[in-house]
Nucleic acid binder design. Structure first.
Lengths: 345, 345
DNA sequence: ATCACAACTGGGAGCGCTCCCACGCTCCTG
DNA sequence: CAGGAGCGTGGGAGCGCTCCCAGTTGTGAT
């Protein structure tokens, strides 16, 4: 036997039912008002809105999720390493963008830090079981299967960066090639003629792009890129330090270095100091990321800025669009980068 | 009339009902197994577990939340300014700690960046309407009513830092007084005798604590703190720069400065360079936070490290405890700080 | 063998919402 | 003036779970 209708929900908060009673309408009508359906007369709508205000009614998320079969939540998945290495501005910039874009929707942001491959696997299962309506993926590596797994499960996904030139999964990237070109053109424009580079891991597409930009800029200026001017790093400071020493040993006459990350530029700067070369007089230095560190290096580091907050916003918009239209246009966005000139070059 | 039971849930995923059917038991029994109730025989439990594995069953969050009247989610609320100013290591450190502590629970982390006072108000309402089981609050200011609002609504809350010495809301803080003492003792131990400090805003409890530590350390060493050795800052680089210039003008003979944040130490360092004073020979410098910037300053900055990740973990544990036991012991934890010695002192 | 009691188990009821069907009404059309 | 065609509306059914109350079975004491 059905229990008598109570005056409030289990926890004392009003339910749809009470709002309906107070407004003198049916449950369905209140639901329609809340969800912005046009099939409600103005009179009724006003009355319902009044009742909602009077009661301080707020829809119950779980009930709504259960009935409507959606969660009104999206997940932002970040490898834990990101929060250390590129903490500023990469991760927090993305986060601000995502959060800003979500601010006037009713959608929750679920943050998932992934430490291990095992957690990565577990995440796919979790995501599938109706925890989220879509997933934002940050810093995906070249061989990462997660984006495809999620996409195959029919879950909307948007990621930052690409795994390759023909990335099938919707994504938002910044113009790494163009940014590197800007940097190298700048160095050439300052009269430097033996411009070296320190690259990231060859298996990361982003690193290849920055190398491509470096080479293209040189060719555009009528110079053939020299192999011995390319140092290999892995985006860490230590690798930048080592690569810089090798470069100088190989080409003592180099007069500029474009580093594919600020952290590597910091390592390179240390190496140059050890070798008694001044920056920017002997060697001009440019980094990539425009991190907080760049601003505070001695001398302040010229760097390529990625529009992190813009990328966060763009990803989120793309994901929300995919969620609502069922993934018809699979966006691929590339946002412009910008050179921030400081005294290291 | 009830519809015939279907073979799977609406979205093709198995439901409790199917697991029960496959294991040849009732719905209630499967629920008991999933929730770890002891009132299930081993035979049955094994059979159910097998069925769960066979079907790849994962409980439906929303359904569970609705039926059990809990959300299995907690919110981490961060003022947006935090993600800029103290991005590293403060925010990401806390985040890693929280995330680590949550890793082997089934609890989701909801991240809420708060930009404006209006959003702050809105959050209270959201939190109340069964979106979360508890709230983690970061960087609360002295006059912030949000912690009390949430606590008054009966929502478990734990925050980092305190608003005052007798903070009523459960919290996890680091030993700011002790950290400042460490720093000053260290400076005195290196033979410095005219130790100045640059403080944070007087209305922030954390700033007062660091000032107290500075003064106590001096007194413990038998010296009376001098008013003209105290510079006022607001945790920003610019304020550190200005305060440093004033201090030197007031007391040209000072030989050490303890800054209540790394950012202010960076500003101070710049001022000292402009004034032609070397670090550490003329003036020894110590910061607070041990940010990434400290490591890369020239010279590398001695700084007080807060156990950010540990604080994140501690907060989370405290919150989970409060959620499960209904808030009986209202924890107040103070974690130790540590001095990281580098060449600036 | 009988009874009390514990240990398990099944399934009804219900969480608060959305979806959708059916039911008045009003207003045209022919 | 009958027959649609819409509009706006009410409310039943059901989302997948947990809770809890009745069984049902098994055990040991009498």
């Amino acid at each position: 036997m059905a229990m008598a209708r109570r005056g409030t929900g289990r926890d004392g908060r009003p339910t749809l039912e009470q709002v309906a009673a107070r407004a003198g309408v049916g449950r369905g009508t209140v639901s329609r008002v809340i969800n912005g359906s046009p099939r409600v007369s103005d009179r009724t709508r006003t009355a319902v809105e009044q009742a909602i205000a009077d009661l301080g009614y707020v829809p119950h998320r779980a009930a709504r999720a259960l009935a409507a079969n959606r969660s009104d939540a999206i997940a932002l998945v970040v490898p834990e390493a990101e929060t250390r290495l590129f903490a500023e501005p990469f991760f927090s910039g993305i986060l601000r963008g995502v959060s800003a874009e979500l601010a006037d929707t009713d959608i929750q942001l679920l943050l998932t830090l992934i430490r291990t491959p095992k957690e990565r696997t577990r995440f796919a299962q979790y995501a599938a079981s109706h925890r989220v309506d879509g997933v934002l993926l940050v810093s995906v590596h070249g061989d990462d299967p997660l984006p495809d797994q999620l996409a195959d499960m029919g879950l909307p996904v948007v990621m930052t960066g690409r795994r390759s030139a023909d990335e099938p999964v919707p994504h938002v990237d910044c113009d790494n090639v163009g940014g590197a070109q800007l940097a190298v053109e700048h160095l050439l424009g300052r009269g430097r003629s033996r411009v070296a580079t320190i690259t990231g891991p060859a298996d990361m597409y982003v690193a290849r792009c920055r190398l491509d930009g470096y080479q293209e800029a040189l060719r555009a200026a009528g110079r053939e890129p020299a192999v011995e001017l390319v140092g290999r790093g892995d985006f860490t400071e230590e690798s930048g330090h080592a690569a810089m020493r090798e470069l100088v040993a190989r080409r003592p006459d180099l007069d500029a270095v474009f580093c594919a990350s600020d952290l590597m530029a910091i390592g390179a700067r240390r190496a140059l100091r050890e070798l008694g070369r001044s920056v920017p007089d002997d060697v001009a230095l440019v980094g990539f990321d425009d991190s907080a560190l760049a601003r505070h290096l001695d001398p302040p580091l010229t760097s390529v800025r990625q529009p992190m907050e813009g990328m966060g916003r763009a990803m989120t918009r793309a994901l929300l669009a995919e969620i609502s239209d069922g993934g018809t246009d699979r966006p691929r966005l590339v946002l412009p980068t910008e050179l921030v000139r400081r005294s290291s070059s």
